[in-house]
Simulated assay, not measured.
Amino acid sequence: MRLLDRAAVRALLDPDALVEAVATAMIDLSTGRASVPPRVAARVGEIGLLAAMPAYSGTLGVVAAKLLTVYPGNGAVDRPSHQAVIAVFAPEDGSLRALMDGDVVTADRTAAASALSVRALARSDARVLAVLGTGPQARSHALFVAPTRPFEEIRVGGRDPHKVADLVEDLARQGVVARGCTIDGALRDADVVCAATSTLRPLVDLESVAPGAHVVSVGYVPEGREVDPALLTRSQLVVEHRETALAPFPVGSNDLAELVARGKIHPDAVDELGEILCGLRPGRTADDQPTVYKSVGVAVQDAAAAAVVLAAAERTGAGVELAL
């Protein structure tokens, strides 16, 4: 078994390879070549939860499972709200091949899928990118989404100006020039919005973004809402997996599930990202209609990222070999 810590995972997780692997995983999920049972979670009172997320991708030939904790209150004490570990198994005999840190994987595989949604759904003339949030997901989204369009302006919006400034400086070191803003300032007439927050009340509505904007929403906390219901009901909606996304929390998205239950959204009208990527459903259908990609995270994305990391580790000899 190969043990890979956070530094090793970060060094081995090539962004281009990750985007391609996640695209394959999304197509597998939408065409029946992946096995992804619903996420299960144990609640830890009112402060957090522990989720288990197993998956198999036939095309990628990977079997993996992620254990993830979500503690929304950790941000108040400068501790990550999401923490994870991933185990990778050999599909031919079930033997344990690797155990790796899952925090970098979670942030980057989510952003890679979001970047695929921007490629497929954002208007070709999109010029302003708004990233909402200041945590690892916001950072990864800025890095992965920035190359998808010739953006003339990238804005980072958050509640804490010091955290906004820190993220802007960090992105500059990675070659992404961004401007720090308030959340409202970042949203104003933005063509592409990536919301990666722990908000309980909607931040993104029809009036705050440009006509035909593409919105990515990855915030995932109990009772959390990032996108106004009026925007959701008037948008072309895209998810990773209908059955998953339209289920109640902790499996799916509360905001979408409630709108389906109230008859405001019909499940058949919701597209899957993999369906769009392989041509089973069209991409953007109207330039003036908003598009929303609502991500709840699916385990086959973790499996795809873990496969990229493990292949690179085996090529380079990275990590530590252990026998349990």
Rank of each mutant, 00 (worst) to 15 (best):
L310E: 12
R149W: 02
R234M: 07
L12A: 11
G274D: 01
P147M: 03
L206D: 13
V176Y: 06
D189H: 15
L116C: 06
T197K: 05
N74H: 03
I265Q: 01
D93A: 13
G48E: 01
S117W: 00
L143S: 06
V292L: 13
G102I: 11
I265S: 00
P211G: 06
R234P: 01
C181Q: 14
L60P: 02
E153V: 12
A299Y: 03
M100T: 10
R127V: 06
P282R: 12
L324R: 10
A11W: 06
D189K: 14
I265M: 03
A318L: 11
S140K: 04
A306C: 11
Y220L: 09
V63D: 04
L237M: 11
A41W: 04
A196N: 12
T31K: 02
L96D: 13
P72D: 04
L232N: 01
G297C: 11
V104C: 12
R33I: 00
Q289Y: 07
E169L: 14
A120H: 00
A165I: 09
V164G: 05
A307L: 11
A130N: 07
L200R: 14
A8R: 07
I183M: 09
M1V: 15
S95E: 14
P211I: 05
G279I: 10
R2T: 13
L29V: 03
V177Y: 06
T182I: 05
L280Q: 14
A313C: 13
A130H: 07
L171F: 11
A311P: 08
R10Y: 04
G48Q: 03
A111D: 06
A76K: 15
V270K: 00
A195T: 15
D5N: 15
A245L: 05
V221T: 12
R6N: 13
E314C: 07
L96Q: 14
L18K: 04
D170P: 03
A112E: 02
P222S: 11
V227I: 15
A138C: 08
I276F: 03
A90H: 15
A245N: 08
R43I: 00
I183F: 02
R79A: 14
L99E: 05
T244Q: 12
A64T: 07
V309R: 08
A76H: 15
P161A: 07
A64P: 01
E92T: 15
G180P: 08
E223D: 13
L99Y: 03
N254D: 15
C278V: 08
D125A: 12
A126P: 05
G102A: 12
V77F: 07
D103Q: 10
R109T: 09
R2F: 08
A122Y: 06
A41G: 13
E275A: 12
G175I: 12
A90W: 07
S235Y: 00
G274Q: 01
G180M: 11
L237I: 10
V308E: 07
A115Y: 00
G58I: 02
G297S: 11
V177D: 14
A304N: 03
K294Y: 02
R6I: 11
A299E: 06
G94Y: 13
A130M: 12
R188T: 13
L231G: 08
A304P: 03
V176N: 04
Q137N: 13
